[in-house]
Design a protein around this nucleic acid. Sequence first.
DNA 1: GAATAAACGAGACGGTACGTCGCGTCTTAAG
DNA 2: CTTAAGACGCGACGTACCGTCTCGTTTATTC
Lengths: 204, 204, 204, 204
Amino acid sequence: MPAKHPGGRPRDERADAAIQQAVQELLAETGYEGVTMDDIARRAGVSKATIYRRWRSKAEMVFATSVHAPELRPDLPTATLHGDVLAFLRSVTKTLSNPQIADIAGPLISELAHNPQLATRFQGRFLAAERADVAEMLDSARARGELRREIDPATAHLILTGPVFFALYTYRLRVDDAMLASLADLITAGLKSAGDVPATQAKG
Amino acid sequence: MPAKHPGGRPRDERADAAIQQAVQELLAETGYEGVTMDDIARRAGVSKATIYRRWRSKAEMVFATSVHAPELRPDLPTATLHGDVLAFLRSVTKTLSNPQIADIAGPLISELAHNPQLATRFQGRFLAAERADVAEMLDSARARGELRREIDPATAHLILTGPVFFALYTYRLRVDDAMLASLADLITAGLKSAGDVPATQAKG
Amino acid sequence: MPAKHPGGRPRDERADAAIQQAVQELLAETGYEGVTMDDIARRAGVSKATIYRRWRSKAEMVFATSVHAPELRPDLPTATLHGDVLAFLRSVTKTLSNPQIADIAGPLISELAHNPQLATRFQGRFLAAERADVAEMLDSARARGELRREIDPATAHLILTGPVFFALYTYRLRVDDAMLASLADLITAGLKSAGDVPATQAKG
Amino acid sequence: MPAKHPGGRPRDERADAAIQQAVQELLAETGYEGVTMDDIARRAGVSKATIYRRWRSKAEMVFATSVHAPELRPDLPTATLHGDVLAFLRSVTKTLSNPQIADIAGPLISELAHNPQLATRFQGRFLAAERADVAEMLDSARARGELRREIDPATAHLILTGPVFFALYTYRLRVDDAMLASLADLITAGLKSAGDVPATQAKG
DNA sequence: GAATAAACGAGACGGTACGTCGCGTCTTAAG
DNA sequence: CTTAAGACGCGACGTACCGTCTCGTTTATTC
């Protein structure tokens, strides 16, 4: 029962690899806007038809071949929650400051909005890995006694990543270590104290 | 006798209004990608030259006519910081959930990256207004005694907006009230406790 | 035990028939330009490889399956040369007015120019049969005493077919019976009188 | 009242000229099949949009810019009808033997079949000029007394051109002077004798 | 009142990427 | 060796959009 495919010539896996590599290279060289399908086909030694047989548009192809597990991981654990938070923020900042990532951010957000399949894939491959790091960070802190309550890792992930994302891509701020320190303070404090007091009642 | 313009036919102000309206309508109908400059010119009853005399590109035009002070303001103040935070988060969520805003987010991020002038204007017109709300919120809390330390409104703004932004546009989560409540808890707690303990030292 | 083929699976003769039929059908439905090799393969229930094992190109295939002996033969002999000529002209007109023939004329001329093998086959299968009719017509006329000189059937064939071909496909004239009558007059007169007078000397 | 055009930027006539020339050059260099729209645009220093604004397809463009009055005219009149006929046949042969003309013949016939507008234009610009030559030839002959009856120039044109066309493009014969002499004999005799005898009655 | 000068509607222009399509070849598994 | 299925390289096609430009016309201000 070795019938690997239903019939006909099977897809050439080398084409996938060649396209993937061509996309990465050209993205680095000319940026998202500068890349053309003809360039990619030429560089990959592949015809445009072969590309369009796999993906329906430039955006689909670029993001399908670009969304992997995060390449940069924070150096965890440090000795303290605050240290871990700061390390995570620095890692996020470094990743999002990567010109190639920054170049892709806008188009990615556009595509995610119109392509639920990509959104699912992006969550599974990229965000899930980061969220796992966050979960580990929270577990360690609880083991150390720094945290008493259970905190949803997804929510923590939002707080750890969103502000930097917003600062860099929307606010267009230079994110320096002082800002990260302030954020780390606020976030760490929040994680530690959350749930201490009833939400609807002011503290005395 | 104040010579309003140096010579020649003055700009027709009705054109500005017509273009503005055409942009808004077409943006709502076909989305940013679907809109073309010819469409806009036709709908506005204006020639393309008239548009390009006012703005240098499609992105310039769209964002110049779309970026105003925020239309939606949180209902502030409530009685408590936690209430204010929650109200702010709800307001942000509502704004960013607007389909027309969501449609524009990706292109806006792309354009902000390449157009510092727009970035400046965006900060001045939109973000500054939001940051002012945040500052007011913090002041009220301090006046009420809920906050002891001074907190940078910009940093607070990042923490209040970034997570929702990230959740909606990147994580592609449905942001419901439960999630906002969790976020509000974490953020409020962080604001209140920040600075309480030395950042580099674990709590006893 | 008569091994009809050297080894391996024999060609499936049903494929030839299926392809032939598919070509004719699709040619009638969509015309030469509109037909694609994939269409033909699909309609014939055959793979493209099976087609290309038999012919080297679309043109080869179409003309190989389309060029047979003429389907329409003039009703010969009538009682007179003039009658025969008119009958022949009518037959040619009818054949060339067939939409499927007309559709193929341009591509056929193109292909004949680049494919001497097809040209040879076209002469042998189609033109030779027509020329034979012409020869017979001339023989009958000589037998009847209508012609005194021997006339090259090929030359006569040119004069009998070329004008109608040119009228229909290049001049784009509606060829009606009146026109055919005029042509028949001229041609018959030419055949009868040719050689009567020295070519280089005006008649007295 | 110098309003030459209804509004907007007028068509650039230099573009028409440049395209025309580019088409002629490239047709000569690479043949009809070898020419591409991008080549033409590049050579003409024009964008493809400018071409497609003028014509709807490659075929339309090529033939619209290629169909002029005939460049080659027979040396008329010679002293006799037979001489004129032979000169005309030689001229036709020479024209149709031109590789560039031969290359275009198939596609032209295809296009004429689908494009009545081109057909009209082709008749008006090319065929009409040739037919006028034929008419003149017939008039001279009648003036000289070589012809007694009036003969329709269009019919004569068919007989003078069709056989050579058919011989070259369909029969794929080498058309030499001997063949032209035979044709000239037949045709001249036909022209002179046409109408002499009742069509439906054999000569005694 | 004429001249100036800029804005206007219309639409053609150069450039360039897109996504589609057709041809003829090649690769697999099955027969 | 042939077949069905279908992927492949190649390369042209025609479309679309952008931002610029060229007209002829209109509308203020300036001389």
